[in-house]
Structures are given as C-alpha cells and as structure tokens.
C-alpha cells in the first residue's frame, strides 16, 4: 500500500460529513482487480444495501472496511479519520498520508463492527461470554459491567434466556443473533452485515431480519449490508448499490433501483434473482 493523498471528507451540502468514505479504493488479487477505483460515501445513520452477482466485489467492500483485507490503492475514511492510512510525519494538514500502523488500525477499527455469514462465534464460550470477551479484553470493562452489557444486548436480540448456552446448543438463527449482540457490545458506529442470512435455513431468516430491523429503528447506527434478500433490502435500506465487476453499476433509492432500474446489468440481475426466488 502506497502513501496517498486524500482529502478529509468535508461536510456535504446537507451539513453532515460522511461516516464512511471509500476514496478511489482499489483491491486486486494478483492480476484480478476485484474493486476498481471505488468511490462511495455513506452518511451517518444511513442504511445501505449492497447487491450484485457473486464475484462482483460486494463482500470485499465490507472486508476492507473491517480491515480484513488490505487495499491496493486509495484511502478509506471512517468518522472523519483515515482508516487505512494516517497522516505522514511532519505533514500535518498537508493531506499527505502514509499506510496505517497496527496501532492506528486498532484505534479506528473500534468504530466498526461486523456480523459474518457463518456467525464465527467462539465455540468454547457461552453466548454471554462471547459478548463479554472483547469488552473486557479490548475496552477494559470490568467483568460486572461487561456481563450487564452482554445480558442486556442478548435480551434485546431475544435471547435473554440463553445466556449460558454454548453456540453448539443454539440454532443457526440464534447463533447469528448472538453474533449481532457480540458486535454491538463493542458499541460500534458502523455495523457491517455480510450475507448474514445466507447460511440459515429459510424458516430462521425472519428472526435475524427482525433483529436487524429493530436495530435500524431504535439506534442511529450506520449499517451496510451485503444481502441476497431483495425484499428486505427494498423495505429496509435507504439506498441500494448494485455492484458489477468491481464497480458500482447503479445506485439509488430502493424504490427506483428495484422499480425502474436504469442499467441493463441491474435489470438482468434483478430479473434473474426474481425468477429464482
């Protein structure tokens, strides 16, 4: 990753600086360019759904924002701070940025939480312990505080009676709800949902979506989700981005994008998905 220049995201006309900015971000795997010069701003509290065919780079967007993937070009900003980079030595105010140190990454990464397709719960810990581990180890909460926070979040996702259950004793839907509570326990400003219902049996999808809906209604979290649930994206998201071959092919309000897609690729994708579903 090279040193870069990138402007601090300024307040837009509406008066709010974006919570997340992808500034000309590029990601390659060898010769394959997965994301090409991605430019995307996401406002604080905005709910963005990312859709697109497999291999279009949509999951990579989330993984880069969670620092699970290094980027090959551009800068990612979170909450007004560069995440992948930090100001270069002696260059304060000049806009010159160098790749982030581990310490800087950890500091900015704390603002982002992620829920994975395959839950990735810690199998050797109870639901409550899953939610307590990082608050105690990373945030330095006392065990008592962490227990209270964890129990509260688990009740919020409807698992107040399963605190001492281990992941192996829970259904997929319950495990995913624990994973949501675990991510929330770190009090992130941005929540990422990576195909969180794709590994679930159909009858368990509803309970997870209900929790996400509730989160959206009760908290002012910025939420970015990669999803195949077109119905949910349409109803829940403020904005939908359609990815195709590493680029945003079309973006807009759900009603427009689903109702009257402008891009030929979007039309093809949506009709294929509707046919299948």
């Amino acid at each position: 990753m090279e040193a870069s220049t990138s402007e601090r995201p300024a307040a837009a006309e509406g008066g709010v600086a974006p919570m997340v900015r992808f500034d000309r971000v590029t990601k390659r795997y060898g010769a394959l360019t997965v994301l090409d010069d991605l430019q995307l701003d996401i406002a604080a509290g905005e709910k963005v759904a990312i859709i697109g065919p497999s291999g279009s780079g949509k999951t990579t967007v989330l993984r880069m924002l969670m620092t699970l993937e290094r980027i090959d070009g551009g800068v990612i900003w979170v909450d007004g701070e560069p995440m992948t980079h930090m100001p270069g030595p002696g260059a304060a105010g000049s806009g010159s940025l160098v790749p982030a140190s581990q310490r800087h990454l950890r500091q900015v990464r704390g603002k982002v939480g992620m829920v994975f397709q395959h839950f990735n719960l810690f199998p050797h810990m109870s639901a409550l312990k899953n939610c307590m581990e990082a608050p105690v180890t990373v945030l330095g909460l006392s065990r008592k505080e962490a227990r209270e926070r964890g129990a509260e979040l688990l009740s919020m996702v409807g698992l107040g009676d399963k605190l001492d259950h281990f992941p192996g004793q829970l259904s997929g839907g319950q495990q995913q709800r624990v994973a949501i509570a675990r991510a929330l326990a770190m009090r992130p400003k941005v929540m990422l949902f990576d195909e969180v219902t794709s590994a679930l049996d159909p009858e368990l999808v509803g309970e997870v979506l209900t929790v996400i809906r509730k989160l959206g209604a009760e908290h002012d979290l910025t939420m970015i989700m990669v999803t195949h649930q077109m119905g949910f994206a349409k109803e829940f998201a403020d904005r939908v981005c359609f990815f195709y071959q590493g680029r945003i092919a079309e973006t807009g309000a759900p009603a427009e994008l689903f109702g009257n897609p402008e891009n030929e690729r979007t039309r093809q994708f949506l009709s294929a998905v509707l046919e299948a579903g």
Partner: peptide, 14 residues
C-alpha cells in the same frame, strides 16, 4: 477456522 481469527479482528483483539 480462519473465521475465528476474522471475528477476533472484527472485535479488535490483538
């Protein structure tokens, strides 16, 4: 599984 490392990173563990 690699997912365990990724979940740890997402929770900001060193």
């Amino acid at each position: 599984p690699r997912g365990q490392w990724e979940a740890s990173t997402a929770l900001n563990l060193t």
